[in-house]
Amino acid sequence: MVNAETTISWVLRIGVTLSALILLLGVLLGENILWLGVLMLILTPFLRVFFAALYFLLHRDMRFFVITLYVILILVIGSLLKI
């Protein structure tokens, strides 16, 4: 099984590279694409939390799975909260 470190390292690398490419594309194509690039950048750390949850679940490490799930919940609430 692939270890957590390698997977998370790749998630971060791909996320950052992808957002840089989308931002560059956005310079040519306009605001909507720029918006997407910024969103991709913000989602990169979110994704790595998501993959950590998946890793803990696969390893039947339920305590850390629940802890990670709680962090995801707060992230989602923070994203959707409209005050």
């Binding site: 971060l12 950052v16 957002s19 840089a20 931002l23 560059l24 956005g26 310079v27 605001e31 720029l34 918006w35 690039g37 910024v38 969103l39 950048l41 913000i42 989602l43 990169t44 750390p45 979110f46 790595r48 939390v49 962090v71 707060i74 992230l75 923070g78 994203s79 909260l81 409209k82």
Partner: peptide, 30 residues
């Protein structure tokens, strides 16, 4: 990274992020 993203998403959804300035900021830092 997660700490900054958790705050950034709030600023982002409230439209405080200047998309034009975000490009040189992010690419420069990278």
């Amino acid at each position: 990274g997660v700490t900054a993203a958790a705050s950034a998403v709030v600023y982002f959804s409230k439209g405080v992020v200047d998309l034009q300035m975000a490009v040189p900021t992010v690419l420069g830092i990278m």
